[in-house]
Amino acid sequence: MANVPVCPVCGERAVPILYGLPTPVAREAAAAGKVRLFGCVIPAEPDNWTCPQDHTWQADDDQVLGAAIDAALHRD
């Protein structure tokens, strides 16, 4: 996906963060490095992106985030 952001700290390609109880498809996507699972406790202002260096941040483009999650979970 071309619009996926890069980390503002290290410049690595971002991976969307998923909160909540993961489905089997989400677990498979996480094992493949397509999403990161952050558990069931959602902070008041949750970050929605992370990178391979474990930096996390919030981005305001919900369409890009949604499209990245859909692609990672093979939802069309």
Rank of each mutant, 00 (worst) to 15 (best):
G11I: 05
P46K: 09
V25G: 03
H55R: 02
D70M: 11
P22M: 11
P16I: 01
A30W: 10
A29S: 08
F38H: 10
D62E: 12
P22N: 10
V9C: 04
R75E: 06
A59I: 00
P43D: 06
G20Q: 08
A67M: 11
Q58T: 07
V9A: 05
E28M: 12
L21G: 01
Q63K: 14
G20K: 05
M1V: 06
D60S: 14
V35T: 03
H55D: 01
G39V: 05
L18F: 10
D61G: 07
R27T: 09
V25M: 13
M1A: 12
P52E: 04
I17G: 00
R36Y: 11
I17E: 00
T23F: 01
V6W: 00
Y19I: 03
H55I: 08
P46T: 09
A67F: 02
T50L: 13
Q58S: 10
N48R: 08
I69V: 15
P46N: 07
V35D: 09
I42P: 00
G39W: 05
P52K: 02
P22S: 05
P22C: 08
N48K: 06
P22G: 07
A59E: 15
G33R: 04
D47N: 14
F38I: 00
N3L: 11
P43I: 04
P43M: 08
L18Q: 04
V41K: 13
P8Y: 11
C40S: 10
D61S: 09
C7Y: 05
N48P: 02
A32Q: 13
A68V: 10
Q63M: 08
V15C: 06
A72Y: 01
I17S: 02
D76I: 11
A26P: 03
P43T: 05
C10W: 10
I42G: 01
T56N: 10
P52Y: 04
K34R: 13
I42F: 00
C40K: 10
D47P: 05
A29I: 04
A26F: 07
R36V: 12
T56C: 07
Q58F: 14
V25P: 00
H74Y: 06
P43K: 10
A32K: 15
A72P: 02
A68S: 15
L18H: 11
I17L: 09
P43R: 13
V64I: 13
A31S: 13
L73R: 14
I69W: 02
L65I: 04
G39S: 06
P24Y: 01
A2F: 08
V4M: 03
V9D: 08
I42A: 03
